[in-house]
Every structure is written in C-alpha cells, then in structure tokens.
Computed example of a mutant assay.
Amino acid sequence: MITQQVTAIALRLFSIWLLIQLILNLPSLVMLFASVEQYQQQEIPMEAYVGLIGAFILVGLIAVFLINKAANSVLKSAKSNSEATLSSDSQKVLFQLAGLYFVVNALAYLPRSLSFIPNTVEISSSSILWPAGLVFQLAIGLWLVSVSTFWLNLFNKLRGRT
C-alpha cells in the first residue's frame, strides 16, 4: 500500500470515529441543557433544544462528510501518482491528518467538559483546566490543518533537511 491509501484509510477511520462520538455525546448534550434549565429555574423553549441539538448534529455530519470527501480525493491522487515514498505533499497531508484528529477529539469532548458550569456557583481553576486544554488542543489542531507548510518546514529544519 502506498502512503495515500494509508492516509485514505486513516481519514475514513476518523470519520467513523467522529460519527460514533457524535452519537455518544448527544445524551450528555441533552443533560447539559436540562442542567442549564434547572440552574436558571426557567423553562427553555423546545425550539431552542431542537435548534441546538440540530446544530450539533449538523456540524458533526458536515465534518464527517468533509473528511470522507478528503479520503476520496486522496484516493484519486493515489491512482494518478504511484510513488511509494513520502513526498512533501504526503507529509503535509499527515500533518493535516494529525490536526484533524486534534480538532475532532477536542470538539467531541468540549461539550462534556463544560458540564460543570450549571452545577457550581464558583468556578475553580481545577475545573477550568480540562476545557482550557481542549480549547488549546482545538487551536493546535486548526493550526496543523491550516498551516501544514509551517510544520513541514519546521520539522525539516529540525531534521537538518533545510
């Protein structure tokens, strides 16, 4: 197997993992909304529940669709290019793949990490560290995805391949 095929398989696995995490996080999202409703002691309209959960599902499904499209485009480029070595384009794709993992992982756990908000009156630094770490992970993932050439140049410089 060439590197593009491995990348396509990894992208498909990420999309399946994201879809599973999307389904698994729906109950915790519903419980979060119920906690917010209880904390505020006011009823949240059903349209808000449906809208927020629908937006969560829509963003997740769009991400799954885009990751699958990326896997298909990688496979199309693999058919036209039969090199077995890691070119700079393949290395960029690997950095973007790592960034996608960080983004998907952060987005999957971020709603769950914010569930402490309606249950506490004062927020301590220890309860804010997990969401802060996930936001940092999200930022690094977005940076890896959007500016993969920076990371490629940095690692080439570190390896002495200027």
Rank of each mutant, 00 (worst) to 15 (best):
N153P: 07
L107D: 00
R112E: 05
F56E: 11
A132L: 15
S73R: 15
L19H: 00
G51Y: 09
Y49P: 04
I2R: 13
I57N: 03
L29R: 04
L18G: 09
P27F: 00
L75P: 00
Q91H: 05
G54C: 05
N119C: 03
N72W: 02
V104A: 06
L154P: 00
L100Y: 03
I44Y: 06
I62Y: 09
E43S: 12
Q5V: 04
N105C: 03
W130K: 12
A34Q: 14
R159Y: 03
R161F: 06
N119I: 13
A63S: 12
W143K: 10
K157E: 05
A139G: 02
P118E: 02
W151M: 05
Y109F: 13
E47D: 11
I62K: 08
V121E: 14
F95G: 00
R12A: 03
L154R: 12
T162A: 09
A139L: 14
G133L: 15
P45L: 05
S77W: 09
S28Y: 06
I140G: 04
E37M: 05
V135S: 10
Q96K: 15
Q21C: 09
A34C: 04
S87T: 15
P45M: 01
L75S: 10
V145A: 08
F65S: 09
Q96S: 08
A106V: 00
Q91T: 13
A132E: 02
S73I: 07
V93C: 10
W17S: 12
A139D: 01
L152K: 06
L154M: 13
Y39I: 01
I2A: 06
F102L: 11
Q4T: 10
G60D: 04
K92H: 06
F116L: 10
V50A: 08
F136I: 15
L58E: 02
Y49T: 03
K79T: 12
A55N: 10
N68V: 10
F14H: 12
Y101G: 11
W130L: 14
Q40D: 06
A139I: 13
W151E: 01
L138Y: 06
N72A: 08
Q38R: 13
S124K: 09
I67T: 14
T162W: 00
L114C: 07
F136W: 03
P118W: 05
L142E: 09
V104L: 07
M31Q: 14
Q42S: 13
